[in-house]
Design a protein around this nucleic acid. Structure first.
Lengths: 338, 338
DNA sequence: GTTGGTTATGATAGCGCTATCCAATCATCG
DNA sequence: CGATGATTGGATAGCGCTATCATAACCAAC
């Protein structure tokens, strides 16, 4: 079929096909391997494509095949280094496999996530990576109805048919609390900001562990809806020490809060850990540099990104990954601050 | 024209047009405003679209119009909070205007940037935001030949026809150096990592200012190709103090290095600023929380993002922004560490 | 040979949308 | 009042690619 062009001078598959002396559809198959093509033709087409500098038009491919190579990755926030590490890992896995990760930032807002999802799904993505399970019912429906393979990151569930990679936030919260108990602290505060579900799960771990030890004091649990930051960590530590001077250890729910708390303690002239112990969560860059070095829980965000991406690639390839839910290990990292 | 469908049950513009009793092209124009359409028809079409839950297919739009709504934003690194702030600002401006910012991370690697550019340009983006001017010749050509409006961020140039928003890295480097001189320091070291062009420009400002004051000592200039990090900052401070004990001030090229340096000084038992003054660059979150609080240069990355995005929107709209080069102000922030 | 089952290649027909031209209507003006 | 131009709606023809079905070629088995 001959076609007249209103075209841009762009090199199309037709040009490649002509140069290789084959039909357009054969050129397509030779380049993208939809179906068997003779080895000699494949070579000829690939050479022609390389020589002409052919670049496939992703819009046309998406339109014709009802699938793009895009993979939206929805994370709550880029200012949390946790998610930057996660995104790097995801990118490292997906990009070489021919997929285009598209970063979407939800700002911890389910409504915003729903909007992003709606927009991204219009692009007919190859797959989908999202953070956690906390979303609007509409968003859930969008994912389900789209038929796009989806892997959930950071948290896990046993629900059948749900593919996820994460770790037990609750258990990780417990472990650090237990460590503080083991060290002999008895007035252990918990400080959290940005009260997303994972934060609350860690709080749950903290609470349960202290209750089991008979040391739980609700007044030592500070949950702030504000955005997590060093400044907030400092402020909350100060508040805590002023209103509850008996506090002898503070478990900050995030390393940035803990950094701020540690520095706040310095400002107040409180010795760490002798007057007050400080613990963090996530083991972000710099925690080992603090003075004293920060005890924290190292979370497997890189592995989550890698394994989540790998699982998604399997789903895209039509395989059924087993297990469908992967729970990874975290690591208690004991340093000088406790 | 009637068309048989191999379709997916997706709601198309045809469905909307039918429901509104107009032709497909009129529906398209009513929704996207390419050309004038009667007010009553617009209302009817919009209502039909809303009622059916119509979502335009971006791939089809891109294919038919040779333009998508995507706007690649290429930044060197997400682990530098600077660029996260920049991206947030860009997103805030572009998204409500109907454009889809696509984050691309170059890892400070021109070859990787070129690859990203090649891939992104295949999507026929509406516009392009890139960091600085340091790229491969091929990348330059790609941008120029694509005809896609492009705004350069972080640095500025007077070259005609180049649209850019940034600040003078050199001058900002000078200002902090001058501040240290004014405070009476005479053995001022410069510590940098990740030697991108902007870092080198700041080094240039440092060098020129010290030379003018007759205080320049090349041995106090530490340029490390490693990735910037707190750990590196601590390590380099230690090295500096060991090999050049006369050093009385250190200008770290980035706040994260400075944080590490400050903490390194603590570990070594060096009083800040009396034994050694510490200065940073960028005024990242937490610099005001350090003990002592970190003197630094506040850089206008949020404004760069906003104004860069605004400029790009003008270019996309066919306007010619004046001026084509915007140089923004930075702020010397003097705190206790100097 | 003919049948039947595999490949390997091609022709055709869209994917869902917009560019472009054309026709119809209406206001403006010498 | 017809000519002119501006404005609004529609018909047609693709954008660049792949799904789908048909066709041709080949080999094994009766």
């Amino acid at each position: 079929m001959v076609r007249k062009s209103r075209s841009t001078g762009r090199i199309t598959l037709d040009d490649v096909a002509k140069a290789a002396g084959v039909s357009r559809i054969t050129a397509s198959r030779a380049l993208h391997g939809g179906r068997a093509v003779g080895a000699e033709l494949v070579a000829r087409v690939q050479q022609a494509a390389a020589q002409l500098g052919y670049i496939p038009d992703p819009a046309a491919r998406a339109l014709a095949s009802a699938r793009s190579t895009q993979v939206p990755v929805l994370v709550p926030m880029l200012s949390n280094a946790l998610f930057v590490d996660l995104l790097e890992a995801v990118h490292r896995m997906l990009y070489p496999a021919g997929f285009q990760p598209m970063i979407g930032v939800t700002h911890y807002d389910p409504a915003e996530e729903e909007l992003l999802l709606r927009n991204f799904l219009a692009h007919r993505p190859a797959g989908l990576l999202v953070t956690g399970f906390d979303r609007t019912e509409a968003a859930r429906q969008l994912i389900a109805n789209s038929g796009v393979p989806c892997v959930y990151l950071m948290e896990t569930t046993d629900a059948p048919g749900v593919h996820c990679v994460g770790f037990s936030q609750t258990a990780a919260g417990s472990v650090m609390t237990q460590h503080l108990l083991d060290r002999g602290y008895r007035h252990i505060a918990f400080v959290a900001a940005q009260l997303d579900p994972r934060t609350l799960q860690r709080a749950e771990g903290y609470r349960a562990t202290l209750k089991a030890a008979g040391c739980y004091d609700a007044r030592l649990e500070l949950l702030s809806p504000e955005r997590s930051s060093m400044a907030l960590g400092g402020r909350l530590l100060e508040e805590l020490v002023r209103t509850h001077p008996e506090v002898d250890a503070v478990f900050f729910n995030n390393d940035d809060l803990a950094h701020g708390g540690l520095l706040g303690a310095h400002r107040l002239g409180l010795a760490v850990p002798s007057r007050v112990a400080i613990a963090g969560f996530n083991d972000l860059a710099g925690s080992d540099q603090m003075v004293p070095a920060l005890s924290t829980v190292h979370t497997p965000r890189v592995e989550i990104g890698e394994q989540g991406a790998r699982m998604l690639l399997q789903l895209i390839g039509g395989q059924t990954p087993t297990p469908s839910s992967i729970e990874l290990d975290y690591q208690l990292v004991v340093r000088a601050s406790t």
